[in-house]
Structure formats: structure tokens, C-alpha cells
Nucleic acid binder design. Structure first.
Lengths: 119, 119
DNA sequence: GTTTGTACTGACAAAGTTGTCAGTGCCGCA
DNA sequence: TGCGGCACTGACAACTTTGTCAGTACAAAC
């Protein structure tokens, strides 16, 4: 059932990575950083993801306190996910990671040194 | 054969994580940040790691330009690994990750809020 | 002359992660 | 009356990552 590989570890680096880690978590956070979204809306906005995986990742991010799940009790159900206050503290970390990664990609295909959009 | 899960991705975050990601990479980098070390020395200093896994991770880190492998042509072989200049650019990123992770761990077991050593 | 240590590889098993598929209850639309 | 959309679950297959085990060559120590 778990999406992120590492069980509880006392290493802060592992602790951080276990929150970020997961095939789609980066993309989900990036999409939600614009605005809150409904489940199906998110699914449609992330090409290639399946509903199953999306929901598993969302649940983990909620459990880790990064996302907030708000549900209106109507039929059909309407659930909206947004980044929590705590989740916002992740943003500067992701920016540092992203900056290094962008530079690393430039190193890799130094042939086409055009700027790449973050995600 | 690969140790890190993601194949080449254009996402800078994934690109960065693919370098860090791997059960023992954080620990290896942390150990080598003190000083260069020989393969077997590293193996002994990381409880629980197997030689096989250590070597696979080392090879990937070398391939990614993070580590440098220096070999003296003697018998028995003597190989020494050290962090490259490029690898040093990772350090500030790891520090940011570590800081967030430390805070996250405090959140988790808020019961015992003593400072945790990095790694 | 058997053992120990070095740095590594190959074949394979065991975990762990991701993906697929079917099914749930209810409403609105045609 | 049948279909699609919503948010989700369970069972399970496929793939990835990690771990286990044996084996390589050579020299020095015992």
C-alpha cells in the first residue's frame, strides 16, 4: 500500500525524501501550487497518471500534512485538495532542488543549452 | 542493474532526485564528506550495507560526476573514492533538505524534541 | 599451503513500487 | 432504462530496486 519506499528513518534526509518521493508527487505538488483542484481535475491535468496512483499519492501527502483534503457532502462527491501551510514550507526546498536539477540537466545534454521550464 | 529508479527525465526535480536517490547514497556521501575512503573502508563504516550494493551505488555516483574514483595499480587493488568538485555543489542542497527533514522529524515525534544529528 | 584481504562481477531471489482492472453508490442526462 | 461522471477500494500483475551468494586474481601472512 505505501507509495514511498522508506519506512520511518531517523535520518533527516531520508525523512525529507520520503515525503517527496513517489513517481508523481513532484508533479502533483507542482500542479497544486497554482490553485486547489478536484481529484478528477488533477487526474486530467497529469498525462499518464492513473486514478489509482493519483489517489494513493494524495493520501500519503495528506497523511504527511502537506496537502489538505476538503470534501463537500454532495452527490456526486466533490473533493478538493490544496497545499497546507506546512506544505508551503516545502516550496523553497523544492526550488533549491529544482535549481540544482536544472543545472544538472544542462550538464547532461550540454549540446542544447536552452533554459528548461521547472517541471 | 540501475540503482536509481527514474530513467532520464526532463523534470529538474526528478533529475536531482535520481542522483540522490538510492537506499545508501545519502549515507555514502555523508561518509565521504569527511575524507576520501577506500571501498572496503566505506563498507565497514556503513553498518548493514553489502559490498554489492555499495559498489553499485558508487558506480552510479561516479557516472553522475559526483564522486571520483582513483585507483592505484597494485596488488591487492587499492581504490579510493572522493567527492568531486561538482559533487560539492550538492552539499548546500543536501543541507536544505536535511534542515527541512530535521524539522519534519520533530513534528512527527513531537514528544521528544531533542536535536537530531544530521544523518 | 591454507587463509585472508582487496575490488569487483554475474546470476538470481526477495522486497518494494507502480500500474491494471473491476467494482461501489448515487445523481443527472437522454 | 441505460450511460457517464464522481471519489474511492481491493485484488493482483508487472516492473524496479535491493539483497544474497558464489566466484575472479593475486599477494602477503600464518
Amino acid at each position: 500500500m505505501p507509495v514511498s519506499k522508506k519506512e520511518l528513518s531517523e535520518c533527516p534526509i531520508d525523512a525529507m525524501l520520503s515525503v517527496i518521493d513517489g513517481r508523481w508527487k513532484g508533479t502533483i505538488l507542482w500542479r497544486l501550487s497554482d490553485r486547489p483542484m478536484r481529484t478528477s481535475e488533477l487526474a486530467r491535468s497529469i498525462p499518464g497518471i492513473t486514478e489509482r496512483m493519483l489517489i494513493r499519492h494524495l493520501q500519503e501527502l495528506v497523511r504527511d500534512g502537506i496537502l489538505i483534503r476538503r470534501q463537500e457532502n454532495v452527490v456526486p462527491p466533490c473533493v478538493r485538495y490544496s497545499i497546507s501551510k506546512y506544505g508551503l514550507t516545502l516550496v523553497p526546498v523544492l526550488e533549491v532542488i529544482c535549481a540544482w536539477g536544472r543545472n544538472h540537466l544542462r550538464r547532461l545534454h550540454a549540446a542544447s543549452p536552452h533554459a528548461l521550464p521547472c517541471k
